[in-house]
Every structure is written in structure tokens, then in C-alpha cells.
Simulated scan of single mutants.
Amino acid sequence: MDTGALLVLLKEEKEKLIQFIDITRREGEAIAGHNLTALQQFLGEKARVKKELKALEEERLAITGEMKLVELMELFPEGRREELAVLGKEMKEKAWELQQLSEMNILLLKSGLAYINKMQESLSPERKAKQYGKDARFNRKQQGTNFLVSSYA
């Protein structure tokens, strides 16, 4: 196994992950700012970067199989093991950051939808607003009030 080529591939994957995080951060700003044009642009960018990330990950899997970082380190020369360990740690931190940003964006979307539903109810009390469920579909029956309170708070 060419450990130098693997390190280059992992660094490329990390850079794509950073790019994906940046887009996700800007996506959150667009959601908070109710900027649908920017949101649409960011969704397109995310789809492109996600495709590139998937290709890099498939390439990595073709080289390493299902080997874990600890197993890979044993194949690296003594002087390059630390570099691989640092890179692995950085990628793990970036994955966590991406997860946090994604969860925040979901909460922003849910909050916005709850607000819209509440406004619909206020403007037309005889007609109940549709509920947006966990499965990302509108529920047909009203399930209580739509307060802007998150179970995550």
C-alpha cells in the first residue's frame, strides 16, 4: 500500500469535508435570514460536494478496505504514523462539527415551520394549519398547539 498516496487522499477528503461544513454554515445563515435563493444555491453546492466526497471515500475504501485507523497506522512507517493520527483526529472533529451544524439547521427549519403554522392559525382560526411531522411530511390532523418550543432546548 502506498502510504503517501493514502495520506494525500485523506487530506483531499478532509478538505472536501471542510468545504461541506462551510456550505452547511452558510446554509444555516440563509435559513435564519429567510433567503430562499441563497438556500437553493447552497443545496446545489452541497449536492455537488457530497458527490465528490462520496467518490473520495469510495477511492479510500478501494485502497484500505474496512481497515480502521489503528490498523492503518501499523502499515505506516514510524515517522508518518503521527501525521495519520493527527489527520484522523481532525477528520473526526470535522465530522462532529458537521453533525452539530446540520442539527442546528434542522432546528431552524422546524422553528420557521412552526412559526408559519402559528401564523396560519392566527389568520384563519376556522381552518387549522397543517402540522409538519418528524417524517418531513404534513400530518393531516392537528396535534395540539404549535408553540415555538423545541424538545432540544
Rank of each mutant, 00 (worst) to 15 (best):
T64V: 05
Q131I: 11
A5S: 10
R60C: 06
R26M: 09
A153Q: 04
R48P: 05
V8E: 06
N139D: 10
Q100Y: 02
G33W: 10
Q99Y: 00
P125I: 02
E29A: 12
K16Q: 13
V70A: 14
E126R: 09
L39I: 07
G133E: 02
L84D: 00
G33T: 05
I21G: 06
A129W: 05
V70P: 07
K141T: 14
L98V: 09
I106Q: 15
K68G: 13
K118P: 01
G112A: 10
F42D: 08
L101P: 03
E93Y: 08
E66G: 07
L72E: 00
M73H: 07
S122Q: 04
S124T: 12
V70W: 00
V149G: 01
Y115W: 14
E83A: 10
N105H: 02
I18N: 14
E121P: 01
E82K: 14
K54P: 02
L43A: 08
L72S: 01
I31V: 11
D2C: 04
I21S: 08
I63M: 14
Q142I: 09
N35F: 03
L113Y: 12
E90H: 10
E74H: 09
Q99L: 08
F76L: 12
V149E: 04
E78Y: 13
K50Y: 07
R25K: 13
Q100R: 08
E93L: 10
D2V: 04
E90P: 09
K118L: 11
T37G: 10
N146Q: 05
L56I: 01
K110W: 05
P77Y: 05
E52Q: 15
L53S: 04
K54A: 11
L87M: 11
V149C: 00
G112W: 02
R127D: 15
E126D: 11
H34Y: 14
A55T: 13
T145Q: 08
K16V: 09
G112C: 07
N146G: 01
Y115Q: 15
K94R: 10
E27C: 12
L56P: 00
L7Y: 01
F138N: 01
K94Y: 14
T3N: 13
K68W: 04
G33Q: 07
L123H: 01
A62K: 15
L98I: 07
W96T: 14
A136I: 06
E71A: 09
L123D: 07
K46P: 08
A153E: 06
R81N: 08
L84K: 00
F42V: 01
F42L: 06
S102L: 12
L113Q: 11
L109F: 06
R127F: 06
L69F: 14
E90N: 11
K11F: 02
S151T: 07
E66D: 15
L123V: 06
I23Y: 14
D135N: 07
K118M: 10
Q41E: 14
L43W: 13
H34T: 11
